[in-house]
């Protein structure tokens, strides 16, 4: 009787999860495998894949734009992650305080991360306009002459970082939830011991929420490797009517790795090479994810949280 129940549970479990299992096979396992196979072949959307061995990988590694786009992407990952985490944590520390209008402030901080990225990017392109844009005109009040943000390769990544920090609302919410879980008694006893606000932050707040921050860092890293839409839109705005031709922005300064994969696949129609590049990306992301979750586990162990 007991065994029978267990069998029935297995069948039911399988049945209820079946849609996801089919989807997993069709939309994850199959494309992953096919993409690996394609990376050893050459084809375009209408031809059959022809086996070319390691040629695509050789070609990718000897393509300076692959390295350029990889370094751009790594730059965004390593620079935007700490900036965004810091911004999210600071906003969260403001938003968890009790004050009048707190609900409105929270909504305002969170709103940018809700609206469609395409709309947000377009407003920012307009704000970044060197002559008529809001940003440079605002800076000029303080006597600062703003740069030509999206045209000058020295500033393009800064512009992307700015947009990213504006959209930090989701991380802020997670930080707020984490802050709310830190026991008040910790702060009370620290108060009695005469700890300053900064000491409380470094000895209580930060260790207590380290595991959440680490998880956020991993997500932010993975997102950096998916960075596509913003740069695609910014580049087509720069080009005006010449949309459709592949470009990496001024001096290829915002040619991100996923964008270059997209160019290879859908503009140059080198789908084999694009698949090889995609797999290189996949391997890098997987290694980073494993490495960072190990670090995250260590961080939470050190903090004494399960």
């Amino acid at each position: 009787m007991k065994l029978k129940q267990r069998n029935r549970d297995t069948i039911n479990g399988l049945l209820f999860a079946l849609p996801w299992i089919i989807g997993f096979l069709c939309f994850s396992v199959y494309p992953l495998g096919a993409s690996l196979y394609y990376s050893f072949t050459e084809f375009n959307p209408i031809t059959k894949p022809v086996w070319v061995g390691l040629e695509n990988f050789r070609m990718s590694f000897s393509d300076p734009l692959v390295w350029k786009s990889l370094s751009n992407t790594l730059f965004m990952a390593f620079v935007s992650t700490p900036i965004n985490l810091f911004a999210a944590l600071m906003l969260a520390m403001v938003a968890v305080r009790k004050f009048k209008g707190r609900g409105i402030a929270r909504a305002i901080f969170f709103l940018p991360s809700v609206i469609p990225m395409i709309a947000a990017t377009m407003v920012w392109i307009w704000m970044f306009d060197p002559t008529y844009g809001f940003l440079n005109n605002f800076l000029s009040i303080f006597g600062i002459r703003g740069p030509s943000w999206l045209m000058d390769p020295r500033y393009t990544k800064g512009a992307l970082l700015l947009i990213g920090t504006w959209c930090v609302g989701a991380s802020m919410l997670v930080c707020m939830a984490a802050l709310a879980e830190v026991p008040v008694s910790y702060y009370e006893s620290a108060q009695i011991d005469g700890a300053s606000g900064i000491q409380k932050f470094f000895y209580i707040t930060l260790p207590s929420i380290a595991h959440v921050l680490a998880y956020q860092a991993i997500l932010s890293f993975i997102n950096a490797f998916q960075y596509f839409q913003q740069v695609y839109v910014i580049i087509s705005a720069n080009q005006g009517s010449a949309t459709g031709t592949a470009s990496g922005g001024p001096s290829n300064s915002i040619l991100m790795y996923p964008l270059y994969i997209f160019h290879n696949a859908f503009v140059y129609l080198k789908m084999g090479k694009a698949s090889a590049m995609a797999w290189i990306l996949f391997i890098i992301v997987s290694l980073l994810a494993v490495l960072m979750s190990k670090l995250a586990r260590k961080a939470s162990e050190n903090a004494g949280v399960e």
């Binding site: 994850s28 494309p31 394609y38 996923p258 995609a278």
Partner: peptide
């Protein structure tokens, strides 16, 4: 299967769109 699938769920969140995009 529940714990296996739960683990796979997390894994699928890490698959970059660019990898599956071409075969699909």
């Amino acid at each position: 299967g529940a714990s296996v699938i739960s683990g796979l769920l997390m894994a699928t969140m890490m698959i970059p769109y660019t990898v599956t995009m071409i075969p699909l």
